[in-house]
Amino acid sequence: MSVSKDDALSALHDIESAKRRSQTLFGYGLASPHLLLWGTLWIVAGLVGALSPANTGIGWCAVDVVGVLGSGWLVARHSRRCGERGERVRLFRYVGSVAVLAAFVTLTLMVFAPASGDQVLMLFTLVVAAGHTIAGCWLGLRYAALGVALAGLAVGVFVLAPAYLSLIVPFAGGGVSIVAGLWMRRA
């Protein structure tokens, strides 16, 4: 069997293309349970806020803790399948990411001192949306679609129905995240 330069070039192109597609689909599969988890928690936080407005802050803190632990469990579960070295590296990355986010949240709230819960909700919704959209630029367009949908939704409600922001955004944002999670699972 002999292979010409054109054949070799074409084969290497196919290899690169299949590799990229495989990594994107694999990434969607990994992201899906996280989106389903956080989408559900977002809705739970919205329910707490709707039923007991005085406990909105506690509700968000509680779902954040559950979400961080749940995502940590998902990362650990996946890491176990990748072997010991992969487990340590992934857990280290996860813990590092959570620490950075916690510091970011604390410092942002301290510096900007938002006057209302709606401002806090908008800030974090837009940060999450931006994170998804940036991920979409590098890892797969479905993340970007989710980010744009979240941002569009939040800004739309902020402009058109600001009085209902704290009611609509958690439910709609959670719903969009769940739909995106199912979409990625089926990719």
Partner: peptide, 15 residues
């Protein structure tokens, strides 16, 4: 088969 192998090779070990 080249595409199959490329797609599988791109995954972490054991995946």
């Amino acid at each position: 088969r080249l595409k199959i192998m490329s797609a599988l090779n791109a995954l972490p070990r054991r995946e």
